[in-house]
Design a protein around this nucleic acid. Structure first.
Length: 555
DNA sequence: GTAAATAATC
């Protein structure tokens, strides 16, 4: 009978229907067992765990004889209800009213209250009593003391207690690592993590989020990547919200988006903290930008020029504020060029705004289009809505103005000589060697998760043919030639007349890590320095891309 | 013999 009731109460404490706990309580009262054995204490415990402080207090006050278990349970109830100060204020009644001396359970709860209150002086007093008590060797209470001192910023005390813990578990390690990391003592916190035999998500989260809190964003990101390489599974959203928060701080929007992808893939998008930090990124930057723009006009009396508007538009469209972007486009006193419309169109695609996408595409068509990439955007926008007539129209326009006017080529510099390659070139004397090398690399890349992104191919053909097209892009030929003929281990230097396509960008990241060589590509818009699987133009993002691919493959 | 305590996120 009692066993059954006890077990049911314990089940109610950890989950299930909150009303069933009250129903059980009613039944216990009815059969007159409310003062019997462990039942009243378990009722307090159950109410405490469910956050029903009033009910817990009711049982506590009605008890004829309170014991240490009752006290430990009611202190937990206060802590759970976020009222640690009430724990401290009610605690003296334990000596007075009930003539009890605290045991290790009560000590741990009290120390926990002090930690939440940042009450270092009281914490020290509790510590002193604990040391004098017969429970002074209890490791759990010591762990809570480590946490309390760490949270109060008294790291030397935390470390001293930590060193006396006989059997250190995940909780004790996490408490001390968190303390050092939040205090910005990076090397010590990292060393502690490495000293752990079995690191888990708790300890990594403590380290990474602590370093983020103390401003060590870059180290934190590298550790975040390392954590996942170590195979630590992200089974709850704590670490994500903290990493997203850091990307907001770094204003690393691309990185933020990558983490956002990870959030979606892992299914934590509904978590409150994660949401809030994400909004800090999509809202924080936009608000900042709008404020600057407004202050430019209102406070400094400046008249925004086309570049200013373009910048604000870019901010809007990158952050998904597409209605605002379109509105601004329609009201601003300038005509914008093709590039601006194209960027808004690609944002429409990214944020799934198909209707607006078609609207923008029509405007862009009316404007006349020169850039080949705009044609791809247009074609994709119409194809996405099955507007095949418009797709055909885009294609006819492409043919009419001969989009392929400027052929892409890449030069590779080997000492004094320079070799030039055109896309799809087949007449080169070393063609076979280059093909074999690229094929081997392709195989290895696919093993590592590479999927060709054929959306960068302009022509109308099947997927296999498109992949083949990508395979023969000039920058790959140039790199292959450089690998075959250059000095082993030297940096491969390539110059390209057009912009490196997105797929080749990914491929070069893979290649540089497979062959262990640095590759530098100067394209039409910038330098790309490929090294260790990353590119200088988006260091973190590359890591994150690889990671999110890994996650998607894993799940 | 029963029942109670400690760590990581905006």
């Amino acid at each position: 009978m009692h066993h059954h009731l006890l077990q049911s109460l314990r089940l109610c404490a950890t989950g299930g229907n909150p009303f069933s706990g009250k129903a059980l309580h009613a039944r216990i009262l009815k059969i007159g067992l409310d003062q019997h054995g462990p039942l009243p204490n378990t009722l307090i415990y159950m109410y405490a765990k469910r956050g029903l402080l009033k009910d817990a207090l009711q049982v506590f006050d009605d008890m004829r004889q309170r014991d240490l278990v009752s006290w430990a349970s009611i202190l937990t109830a206060y802590n759970r209800a976020n009222l640690p100060n009430r724990s401290i204020s009610i605690f003296p009644d334990m000596f007075g009213r009930d003539s009890l001396q605290p045991d290790h359970f009560v000590f741990a709860s009290l120390v926990n209250s002090c930690a939440a209150l940042n009450a270092l002086q009281i914490g020290r007093q509790v510590h002193a009593q604990f040391v004098l008590s017969e429970f002074s060797s209890d490791d759990i209470t010591k762990s809570s003391l480590v946490d309390m001192y760490a949270k109060c910023g008294s790291l030397d005390d935390a470390r001293a207690v930590f060193d006396t813990i006989c059997t250190k578990n995940s909780v004790s390690w996490t408490a001390i690592i968190s303390g050092y990391a939040k205090a910005g003592r990076k090397s010590e916190s990292v060393k502690l993590l490495r000293d752990m035999k079995v690191q888990d998500l708790f300890s990594w989260t403590a380290l990474i989020s602590g370093l983020i809190q103390s401003g060590h964003f870059v180290s934190a990101f590298h550790l975040f990547v390392e954590m996942q390489k170590e195979g630590i599974k992200i089974i709850d959203p704590f670490i994500l919200s903290s990493v997203i928060g850091a990307s907001a701080n770094l204003a690393a929007q691309e990185l933020g988006k990558q983490v956002h992808c990870l959030v979606l893939k892992l299914g934590f998008e509904s978590n409150l903290y994660v949401c809030n930090t994400l909004i800090d990124i999509h809202v924080g930057l936009v608000n900042k930008g709008c404020d600057l723009f407004k202050s430019m006009v209102d406070d400094y009396g400046l008249k925004p020029n086309l570049q200013h508007y373009t910048c604000l538009l870019d901010l809007y469209s990158r952050s998904g504020y597409l209605d605002e972007a379109e509105n601004l486009l329609n009201t601003m006193p300038f005509e914008v060029d093709e590039a601006v419309w194209a960027s808004l169109l690609s944002a429409c695609k990214r944020f799934g705004k198909t209707q607006m996408g078609i609207r923008i595409a029509n405007r862009l068509m009316g404007l006349g289009v020169k850039d080949p990439s705009s044609y791809i955007l247009l074609s994709n926008a119409y194809a996405g809505e099955s507007m095949w007539e418009n797709v055909a129209k885009v294609r006819r326009l492409m043919e009419a103005i001969d989009v392929k006017k400027e052929p892409g080529y890449s030069c590779v510099h080997l000492g004094k000589e320079t070799e030039v390659f055109y896309a799809g070139e087949t007449g080169h004397p070393m063609k076979n060697e280059m093909r074999v090398l690229l094929k081997d690399l392709d195989e290895e890349m696919r093993k590592r998760g590479y999927v060709p992104d054929v959306s960068f191919v302009l022509h109308d053909m099947g997927k296999k043919e498109k992949e083949n097209q990508l395979f023969w892009h000039s920058e790959r030929l140039a790199v292959a030639y450089g690998l075959l003929n250059g000095v082993p281990g030297s940096v491969i230097r390539v110059v390209k007349n057009l912009r490196v396509c997105g797929d080749c960008h990914t491929v070069l990241k893979f290649i540089c890590s497979i062959v262990g060589r640095e590759i530098v590509v100067r394209d039409a818009s910038r330098f790309h320095h490929f090294k260790d699987g990353r590119c200088s133009c988006s260091d973190f993002c590359c890591d994150m891309e690889a990671l999110s691919r890994k996650v998607s493959v894993g799940s």
